[in-house]
Design a protein around this nucleic acid. Structure first.
Lengths: 208, 208
DNA sequence: GTCTATAACGGGATAGAC
DNA sequence: GTCTATCCCGTTATAGAC
C-alpha cells in the first residue's frame, strides 16, 4: 500500500531541511522534489509553518518519552551509553532544528518555550543518572560539581552533532554518533572510581 | 568629530544581527534604525552580503590574532583563563555568526572555509596550551586523551555563549562570560595535579 | 487529491534628483 | 552623501478547474 502524500511531504521536508537547512527550503522546492504541484502541497498543509511544527512535534514527543528516566533505578554505564546513543540518534534525525536554532526559534516563536522545556528535561535526565551513579558508589561529587558536570554534558549533547558536521565537513553525511556518545561519557570518566573508570576508558578505546 | 556613516552602519548592523538574528534583519530595518534612507545604505555598501562580510572579517582578524599562542612559552592557568576570557568576549561580540551558523555559512558560502580555518586555529591553540601545561608537569595525559580534551574544550568554547543565552533567556542580554571561562577550565580540572587543581577549584568557587 | 494559474507580499537592489 | 521612487524577483499562499 502506498505512503500517503501527506507523509511523503513530511519525510521529504525533513530530509531537505536537514541537508540544505530549513530557511533555504522553499515550499516550491519541496513539491518539486516530490514531483507534485505546490497547490497540492498546500492542500495538505495550510502553511510551511505547519510542516515545521509537525516535524518539531514529532521530535518533541520522541525525545520527551526518552528523557523520562526512572528516578530510583540503578543505571549502569552501559545503560547510559545506550541512552545517549538513542538521544543522539533523535537529534541527528532532526538536526535541522539545531543547525539554525535561533533563526528557527524566532521565526516560529511558539517553538521557543517548547525547545527550552526539552532542554530542561535533558538536564534533569542527566541529573537523575548522575545521582544514580552516586548512589551506586561509582562516583562522589559535591552538589555544585555535579550540576556543572550535568550542564556540560547537556551542552555537549546539544551541539555535538552540529559541531561534528562542522569540523569534518567531508560530507560523509552520516556523522559518527558513537564518537558523540564517547565524548559525553568521557566527561564523566575522570570522576568515576577505579573499575567504573576503566570501563569507560575501555569503551573509548573503540574509537581511536 | 562625527562617526562616519559607513561605520555607523556596521555598528548598528552588528547590534541588530546579534539581537534579532541576521536573517531577520533587512536592509530597511538597518537604515530605519539609523534614520537614514535605504538608498544611502546602498551608497556605502553595494549589498547586505558586503556588510556581513566586513563584520565577519573583523571577527576573523581579531580572533586569528588572539589564537596565535607562542609555542614555547610557559602558560600559567591564569594566563589561560585570561586567554579564554578574551576569546569569549570576541565570540559574544559577534555572536550572530554562531546563532545561525549553518544558515550563515551556506548563504554566504565564502565564509565556510574561513570559519573552519578559525575553528582549526582554536583547536591548535588549545593543544599548544595543553602541551605547555604538560611540560610544566601540571598534568599528564596520553596523546589521545589530550586530543579528546582539546576537542571538548573547543566545542564548549564555540557554543557556550549560544547555549547560555538559550537556557537562561531571562533577557539579561549580558551573558556572564566568566561562567563560560569557568566551564572550560573545569574540563581541565580533573586532569590537573594537586596544587594546580586546587587553583582551578578556587577560581570556580567565585561562580557559585 | 491533484493540477495550473496567479495573487499578494516582502526584501534586495538601482536610478536619478538634490 | 543623502534622499525618494521604483523595479525586480523569489516565496508564500489562494482560486478554481479537473
Amino acid at each position: 500500500m502506498k505512503i500517503k502524500t501527506r507523509d511523503r511531504i513530511l519525510n521529504t521536508s525533513l530530509e531537505l531541511f536537514n541537508t540544505v537547512g530549513e530557511p533555504n527550503v522553499t515550499t516550491l522546492l519541496i513539491s518539486d522534489e516530490l514531483e507534485i504541484s505546490p497547490g497540492n502541497l498546500y492542500y495538505h498543509f495550510k502553511s510551511k509553518a505547519e510542516i515545521v511544527n509537525e516535524l518539531f512535534a514529532a521530535y518533541e514527543t520522541e525525545l520527551m518519552d526518552m528523557l523520562s528516566v526512572p528516578e530510583e533505578a540503578d543505571i549502569s554505564l552501559d545503560d547510559q551509553a545506550l541512552f545517549l546513543h538513542l538521544v543522539f540518534e533523535a537529534i541527528a534525525r532532526f538536526r535541522f532544528i539545531y543547525q539554525d536554532l535561533v533563526n528557527i526559534l524566532t521565526r516560529y516563536d511558539n517553538l521557543q518555550n517548547r525547545f527550552r522545556r526539552i532542554l530542561r528535561a535533558k538536564e534533569k535526565a542527566f541529573i537523575v543518572i548522575a545521582e544514580s551513579l552516586q548512589r551506586q558508589g561509582l562516583m562522589q561529587l559535591a552538589d555544585h560539581e555535579l550540576s556543572a558536570l550535568c550542564e556540560q554534558m547537556c551542552l555537549t549533547m546539544t551541539y555535538w552533532v552540529s559541531f561534528e558536521s562542522l569540523s569534518h565537513l567531508d560530507n560523509r553525511d552520516e556523522t559518527d554518533l558513537g564518537r558523540g556518545v564517547f565524548q559525553v561519557m568521557n566527561l564523566l570518566a575522570p570522576y568515576l572510581t577505579g573499575t567504573a573508570r576503566q570501563q569507560v576508558v575501555a569503551m573509548s578505546e573503540a574509537y581511536l
